[in-house]
């Protein structure tokens, strides 16, 4: 049990390194290592490929995986629901809508504009959710959950509308972005995502105890002195930071937040102080591996978001069937 973290760290380092080898020009292990050590040099050299193309891309993917898995684990505790996921409450779809609107209205905006818009969208969605659920009294968990689901479908309709109204060129761009992918991600994207992912992680881990208590139910949490409403707000902020960062650089990548905490619980237990860090590492590992597999073995252009959905849907259905059997 104690070896879980070293194993995950080693596996992640391995996956990141493997991911540096794969791509349109093959690198050997030795040349990749040499390029890594040499540091960023000329663009067309091996070290250029490693430092300017593959490393930032891999880091972006790892950050996104960590962020989604952490916020998934936090949501599952908050909603006492193993099916909860960052995309459930409309936070991810809010980010997607904002990004689509920017692509739609300002097609020639600079590269950093899109991530910032997605990020702002996630935050706005979380803020709208908090405001709506606190309107007219103290929200229950069910009210929050249902409001989130409704908001999510509203944002998705908005995105569909933008797709319907866009011209052919915009449409290609939008669909590509909405499929969720890591093509051509640069250090700019890393620097946009990293601070928010780290901040979101710190926020969520800092309230690990509150999350544990909330996972027994609000009445239990309140009776051990947890300020339940504030705790819920903090979880939403932490998750909006993480998910916002993820959506902003990779588009909406689904199911990582749902799957990873489930895989980790039998290993490290459900206590958030262990589950959140383990999920972060495993989420990064899963997404870096998926990205590697997609690039090496699968047809070009199979976007990361599509792959995680293809893998995630059967897993979700299996989970649903298993949970139902357990409930009977």
């Amino acid at each position: 049990m104690k070896r879980v973290f070293p194993i995950l760290v080693l596996a992640l380092v391995g996956a990141v390194f493997a991911s540096l080898l794969a791509g349109s020009s093959d690198l050997t292990v030795a040349s990749a290592l040499k390029a890594l050590v040499a540091g960023p040099q000329g663009v067309l050299t091996d070290s250029g490929i490693v430092w300017f193309v593959r490393l930032p891309r891999t880091l972006v993917v790892a950050l996104v995986g960590a962020a989604l898995a952490t916020s998934g684990a936090a949501f599952q505790a908050l909603f006492r629901n193993p099916m909860a996921d960052p995309s459930l409450l409309g936070i991810a779809s809010g980010g997607a809508l904002a990004a689509v609107l920017v692509l739609f209205h300002f097609p020639s905006s600079p590269i950093w504009m899109l991530p910032l818009a997605a990020f702002a969208g996630c935050f706005a969605a979380a803020a709208i959710l908090v405001a709506l659920t606190h309107f007219g009294g103290r929200p229950t968990m069910t009210v929050t959950l249902l409001t989130g689901v409704v908001l999510s479908s509203l944002f998705t309709s908005g995105t569909s509308l933008a797709l319907l109204l866009s011209n052919e060129y915009q449409l290609r761009q939008l669909v590509f972005w909405l499929a969720g992918g890591a093509e051509a991600r640069s250090w700019t994207h890393v620097w946009i995502a990293a601070p928010a992912v780290v901040a979101g992680f710190v926020v969520l881990v800092s309230i690990a105890r509150w999350l544990d208590a909330l996972s027994l139910g609000e009445d239990h949490a309140e009776s051990v002195g947890v300020p339940v409403e504030r705790a819920r707000g903090v979880v939403l902020v932490g998750a909006a930071l993480s998910v916002g960062a993820a959506v902003s650089v990779c588009g909406p990548v689904g199911f990582v937040g749902l799957i990873v905490p489930h895989l980790m619980r039998p290993w490290v237990g459900a206590a958030s102080r262990r589950l959140l860090p383990a999920s972060a590492l495993a989420g990064a590992l899963l997404l870096v591996s998926a990205d590697f597999i997609a690039r090496v073995f699968l047809p070009a252009g199979l976007q990361l978001g599509v792959l995680t959905s293809l893998l995630g849907v059967p897993f979700f259905l299996w989970l649903l069937i298993r949970e139902r059997r357990r409930m009977l």
Partner: peptide, 12 residues
């Protein structure tokens, strides 16, 4: 509904 250890629960 969540697989917390008994001791984790008492620790709350």
């Amino acid at each position: 509904t969540v697989p917390l250890a008994v001791e984790d629960l008492v620790t709350m």
